[in-house]
Design a protein around this nucleic acid. Structure first.
Lengths: 341, 341
DNA sequence: TCCTCTTGGAAAGACGTTTTTGCAAACGCT
DNA sequence: AGCGTTTGCAAAAACGTCTTTCCAAGAGGA
């Protein structure tokens, strides 16, 4: 007794359309030499039967696995990409959506070993989020011949590589300009010791901006764990300086939330005594803080989508004209930098 | 010119071991009739060559996709599972690890449509995190003949189903006992309006416990978005009552963080005037709060691991003796319930 | 000795596609 | 009319594994 529920295969479509399976395959994939009339007819039949090619069979014949890996955990230390959860979640969701739309599946690699060709799961390509300097995972994957796209660049590496990133230098300058326009005179940078291109770029841009504007740079690094508590501690030290800053740009929103608390504890009013700005995912937290926080929106969805898209292009042999993708940023001004005149 | 890098296939192993591919397959999979001597020899050769069966080919012949989906977004409203992200991330990582260990890949389904048999990606089974009452996604998947395991139960559903969960009733009672022992007399429950089995279980257990202990129940629901801000607002209302509670159990850690802030704002000291406890992932946030928060550890990794394991058992035809799995909990007492005598 | 039963292992088919090759028919040119 | 070229499509091989079927050799019994 047959299962009547069996999905239609290419053979059923061929039989129904009165052609061979070859013709069906060619018609659906735009290959071969077929008159438009036949192509259309086959497509109509396929639609009617709800035909979807079996991905496993297709992968087998084209020699792929159909899987993309996304690696999240840096070696050692607190995994910052995962700590900054909202950012990572949005990046990953968008990447997964894009992968599926292109016939791939995005699988989460909980540890490095998951993508190890000998130990783990075989993937066609991988996305590495915020690689650290000389990231061993990136090397390992490259050596294994697996295509890699990183979000954020591999710091200090000159080798040609594919990445998707914001223009953090320009973004930082935009935000510093904003703080300056809003009256900030002694603008401090509150950042983390993470060794990723993001923090490097921001600090570099900050120092260069300060030099151009004749402002003495003031950089404070928080503890490596990206918690509000770490932000609280670091901000408290900043505010206890003999000449405390009158504006702070925090590189992670959690640091900013901690700063908010530190200011409140010390009776420092935001924005009257202190301008505060940070980066943002599309989460609502900065908007709902009190006062609402001015943010630099970095559009992690676009980063994730772009990374997956770039990777798919690579794998499908569509050499992208640009191996890099810059995602735009946007300064969203809110109460924390709106000072009464 | 051949690629010398080509992975060893079953044919190479067969040639090297001087047997047929059939024998290799049987030896490696424990099928067929072979003397132990042959089995061992073949295995040794396979190890030496680093042979790993091609998952795609295997899946094709056994008629599987090798993919498990994990659905994260509930329909409408703010996706609580994702908002409470540390919990979800840990659950998912553990599930992915377990899936890979069993030869499956876990793919993230960013939206319901991703698992739609007609529109999305074909999976062998799915994990649905915290289904809502009468969850449409669960039904859809079941109707499509896809095995489903949920973390948390489908509220109000009687149909036999596979799930992994904590014993939230027992866990809640443990925590309430703890608060009572530490001097709580008017213990309030701060929870969210999410329609998932977790919140239902906790509220039910709370009311029953109150009745048994002759305490008037006091349940406060926060706004549906699980932010610290929502916790702040709801806790503020609680503390403004004519007879405010002297202990609060918050069902999400963010609500507790908001409560901490509300208490500080109103000059209510924790733990001296107010005992505070909440649930926890393995994140460090509650431990690092000030004061450190007493938590109910729910071990989301175990939930994720268990769900994946159960699903794999189902798919591989190993009917589990128990379609349910209860993950243990643990009360971790910290400063927020340590009242000076 | 002949027959049957067990054991060890090989051959071949199947899974559902894509891709390569091949073959007619139609067409255009001289 | 004869010949090369295009056009439209089909047949068949291939992808790498698992599974079923089948055969030969040896063991045991009558």
């Amino acid at each position: 007794m047959r299962q009547p529920r069996a999905r239609a295969g290419i053979k059923q479509v061929a039989a129904e359309a009165g052609v061979s399976v070859t013709t069906v395959s060619h018609a659906l994939n735009g290959k071969g030499r077929l008159p438009d009339e036949t192509r259309q007819r086959v497509r109509r039949v396929a639609d009617r039967l709800g035909y979807k090619p079996n991905a496993t069979a297709r992968n087998l014949v084209v020699g792929k696995t159909g899987l993309l890996g996304i690696a999240v955990s840096q070696q050692g230390g607190p995994p910052s990409a995962v700590t900054d959860f909202a950012y990572f979640a949005q990046l990953m969701m968008a990447a997964s959506t894009e992968a599926i739309a292109n016939g791939y599946a995005l699988v989460l690699a909980p540890a490095e070993s998951a993508l190890d060709p000998h130990a783990g799961i075989a993937v066609d390509g991988a996305i590495v989020v915020d690689p650290v300097s000389d990231d061993p995972l990136v090397h390992e994957l490259r050596d294994a011949g697996i295509a890699v796209v990183s979000t954020g660049r591999v710091p200090g590496s000159d080798e040609p590589a594919c990445w998707v990133d914001n223009d953090h230098v320009a973004a930082t300058r935009s935000m510093l300009d904003h703080l300056s326009r809003r009256g900030g005179r002694r603008i401090a940078l509150l950042t983390s010791p993470a060794e990723i291109s993001y923090t490097f770029d921001v600090e570099l841009a900050y120092r260069s901006w300060c030099e151009q504007h004749g402002i003495a740079p003031c950089v404070k690094q928080s503890a490596p764990d990206l918690t509000e508590r770490a932000g609280y501690a670091a901000a408290s030290e900043l505010l206890a300086l003999p000449e405390p800053p009158d504006a702070i740009f925090a590189t992670y929103d959690r640091l900013a939330f901690g700063t908010l608390l530190a200011a409140e504890t010390r009776g420092v009013r935001v924005p009257d005594d202190l301008l505060l700005a940070t980066t943002a995912t599309e989460s609502q937290a900065p908007e709902q803080a009190s006062p609402s926080l001015t943010t630099l929106d970095l559009h992690p969805q676009e980063i994730g989508r772009g990374a997956a898209s770039l990777l798919v292009d690579l794998l499908d042999g569509r050499e992208p004209d640009q191996p890099h993708l810059l995602v735009p940023h946007r300064v969203v001004a809110r109460s924390s930098t709106r000072r009464a005149r």
